[in-house]
């Protein structure tokens, strides 16, 4: 039955048998391909790709939900954005925060990973303590830190009093709030940095550090000249990844300060959230989001470009 149909179609098309089978197989492969990719693609395109275009369109519109009309206003949202003092200060806060958070997390992570990269007693306990910070949500983390740093009853101020230091206002003080946010997020990301650096340290071949030691290099020189360069791919990854996350800081600010005091912790994404979901200025918020996107792209590209010069890849 099947053979006779195949023979019939062969007679009709006049093609050699192998080619017909190949074409039929290609068609079935194409069908199968589309059947396999369709569910994931529909979701990713509908909730990921369409919004990219849509928010770009919105950034050229006056769209504030209150009126049904959304006229195109050209570059007006972008012009407003450049002259908006709130955007400028939000950008400043984001830069200061990123400059504190990224190196802070990398140094803490590297230090802990080096200390934990050895088989001593209780090492699994020490490592688990660092890893555990990965399981805590940003909201839980922020909630416990506002209690630790409470100006009146917090344990940190108690510690300060034991050391004879003056009592601080922490999250209530505009000049300190961003530092406290940086401290809590560094704590929250420490486990992640430790995991990345520990994995990289375990890839450092022992022959190299031993050879350096035989050649008379001290521990510090070995670390500085051998280990650190071998860790540079992990460092580059962490720098890029942490920066992308730092530029998108939101959760901790939302819970601990709501952008205050006096706007001192209003970072870009928090300002964007306020514009979009409290003022319902979707057009303006979309313009801010696109500015953020471009900044992230540029910063990441620079990091890879500069990083490549300092990154040492084996093989």
């Amino acid at each position: 039955m099947a053979a006779s149909t195949a023979a019939a179609s062969r007679r009709r098309s006049g093609a050699p048998p192998g080619e017909v089978r190949n074409r039929a197989m290609a068609r079935s492969e194409s069908l199968a391909g589309w059947a396999f990719v369709t569910p994931a693609s529909v979701i990713i395109l509908l909730f990921g790709a369409v919004p990219i275009v849509w928010s770009l369109v919105m950034s050229f519109q006056q769209n504030n939900l209150l009126s049904p009309h959304t006229p195109f206003v050209g570059l007006r949202n972008y012009r407003t954005l450049i002259h908006d003092p709130a955007v400028l200060s939000a950008t400043e806060h984001t830069i200061v925060y990123t400059a504190l958070f990224v190196p802070g997390t990398m140094i803490v992570g590297l230090f802990l990973a080096v200390a934990m990269n050895r088989q001593i007693r209780f090492i699994n306990f020490y490592r688990t303590a660092a890893y555990a910070t990965m399981a805590i949500s940003t909201i839980s983390e922020a909630l416990v830190f506002i209690w630790l740093f409470d100006p009146s009853y917090g344990i940190v101020n108690y510690g300060f009093s034991l050391l004879g230091l003056p009592q601080q206002q922490f999250l209530n003080d505009p000049s300190q709030a961003l530092f406290v946010v940086a401290v809590m997020t560094i704590w929250g990301w420490a486990g992640f940095a430790v995991v990345i650096y520990l994995a990289a340290l375990q890839g450092v071949p022992r022959e190299l550090t031993e050879a350096a030691a035989i050649d008379g290099a001290g521990r510090w020189a070995t670390f500085r000249r051998i280990t650190l360069p071998l860790l540079s791919p992990a460092s580059l990854f962490l720098a890029v990844w942490l920066t992308i996350n730092a530029l998108q800081l939101f959760d901790e600010v939302y819970l601990s300060t709501q952008g205050g005091p006096l706007g001192a912790t209003t970072v870009v994404v928090y300002y964007l959230y306020v514009q979009a979901f409290q003022n319902f200025s979707f057009g303006y918020a979309s313009a801010i989001a696109y500015m953020l996107f471009i900044v992230i792209l540029v910063v990441t590209a620079i990091q890879f470009r500069v990083g490549r010069r300092f990154t040492y890849y084996r093989s």
């Binding site: 919004p51 990219i52 992308i244 998108q248 964007l272 979707f282 953020l292």
Partner: peptide, 11 residues
């Protein structure tokens, strides 16, 4: 590549 903040309003 696109951060969530860009897509969240249309989403």
């Amino acid at each position: 590549m696109v951060p969530f903040q860009v897509t969240m309003i249309p989403q």
